[in-house]
């Protein structure tokens, strides 16, 4: 490799690479989603976002408890985990065919790979119910990670688009 100062390199390469500019430069960025599509399917999408949000809000105190940020409370664990299970059961019914169109981060793969989606959802509900029966602090962290990992995370990695896409 030829050793040269960065400035010299830049100068030489810019002289050489006018064509490179064309080849490697990035085309202007594309816009986001189609605004026309955003309007459709609002009701069911809103409902499932709300149900998921409530499940998530009830998961947060359990994570805090398992990190010892708030004291362990078996009754509170049951209360939150029951709500999570109920909200997951509710949202499982809120993914009808065609509801990938609109203001949603749901990937079309949910519908092209429905069996796997349903299987993860079923696991998540089971793990939420298992979490509800936790009675001691040492059972909590594995149960939280099981729900969060095999439920929430497993599904979101496969079937949820990142923010802003």
């Amino acid at each position: 490799m030829i050793q040269m100062r960065k400035g010299t390199k830049m100068l030489l390469a810019s002289a050489l690479g006018a064509a490179l500019l064309g080849g490697a430069a990035i085309a202007g960025s594309h816009g986001g989603g189609n605004k026309m599509e955003m309007a459709k399917g609002g009701g069911v999408i809103e409902a499932r976002v709300k149900a998921m949000k409530e499940a998530s809000n009830n998961f947060t105190p359990l994570v805090k408890m398992s990190k010892n940020l708030i004291p362990f409370d078996a009754a509170a664990v049951k209360k939150h985990a029951d709500i999570i299970a109920a909200k997951l059961e509710e949202s499982a019914k809120l993914f009808p065919e065609g509801s990938d169109k609109g203001d949603t981060r749901a990937k079309p793969e949910i519908w092209s790979n429905r069996a796997e989606f349903d299987a993860i959802m079923k696991t998540a509900i089971e793990k939420a119910k298992a979490l509800a029966s936790v009675t001691s602090p040492d059972q909590l962290t594995p149960a939280v990670r099981a729900l969060g990992g095999e439920g929430c995370m497993a599904c979101h990695k496969k079937f949820r688009k990142p923010k802003g896409e």
Binding site: S56, F59, T60, V63, S66, K67, R105, V144, R145, G148, G149, C152, M153, H156, K157, R160, K161, P162, K163, E165
Partner: peptide
Amino acid sequence: YGEAMGYQDLSAGG
């Protein structure tokens, strides 16, 4: 742990 411990933004996408 990512989302398994409640860290949401580390799951979807790349």
